[in-house]
Each structure stands twice: as C-alpha cells, then as structure tokens.
C-alpha cells in the first residue's frame, strides 16, 4: 500500500489533520514527528485531529494519539480529537484506553467551536 503522507492544514494558530483508516505504523510515527515540528514552528495554539474515518484504534494508534497530545501540551498547544465513531469508543474503553488528558469533540466543526474564545468573534 502506498504510505502517503498525511496533509496538515494550517488555519491561523490551529493545525488540522485528517487521519485515514489505512494508516500504517510507520506513517503514523512520521506524522507525529511532522506535527510536533509544525506545532513548534508556527507556535500553534491547538491541533484538531479528524478521526471520523478511523474504523479502529488499537493500542498502538492510541499510544500515538496520547503521545501527540502530551507533546503538544508541552509545546503549549491543546489537542482535540474530533469525530470518534461509537464502536471505536466502546472498544477503546473496553481495552482500558480512555485517552486521559485528550480533549474530544463530536466533529471538526464542534472542535473549532470549542476552540473559539467564549463569546468571541464568531458571527452566526
């Protein structure tokens, strides 16, 4: 399978990336590296990871997600996991992996709302 890189989008001080279901271990590790570089390079305030497409998260993928969150926090950025499917959530909890310290949102849209300052500049 062609291990294509994961594009990281920059929206102001927010980085956004969508993870594909075909994520292999090496690509995931490279992605975590690349992300930490970018967080530090632009002084990102937040990272939103769209995981809507992930049909499974095993302990390896969970470890990478927790690592990304820890790394980002050390660099001063929040990490929001957006759009986890319900079977994935059930499975993770059963595995005992409830990703402590990682923020979550129902979708990328909700994640952006969460990040917007309260009573902020958003116009409805």
């Amino acid at each position: 399978m062609n291990s294509s890189e994961i594009p990281i989008l920059r929206l102001g001080k927010v980085l956004l990336a969508g993870l594909s279901n075909e994520l292999d271990d090496k690509t995931a590790l490279r992605f975590a590296d690349e992300l930490s570089h970018q967080v530090s390079a632009i002084g990102a305030e937040a990272v939103v990871l769209d995981i809507t497409k992930l049909e499974i998260i095993d302990s390896f993928a969970a470890r990478i997600l927790v690592e990304i969150a820890t790394m980002a926090r050390l660099l001063g950025a929040r990490v929001v996991l957006a759009g986890m499917r319900y079977p994935v959530a059930i499975t993770l909890v059963e595995l005992g992996l409830d990703l402590p310290g990682v923020e979550t949102a129902l979708s990328v849209e909700h994640a952006m709302d969460k990040l917007a300052p309260p009573g902020g500049s958003r116009v409805g």
Partner: peptide, 12 residues
C-alpha cells in the same frame, strides 16, 4: 462507567 468514558471519547 464505561458508557460515560465512551461518551467522553466521542466528544459528548
């Protein structure tokens, strides 16, 4: 408890 944890993972 698991339901609560899974709800949180989904962002609710």
């Amino acid at each position: 408890m698991q339901t609560v944890a899974a709800t949180r993972l989904m962002g609710a």
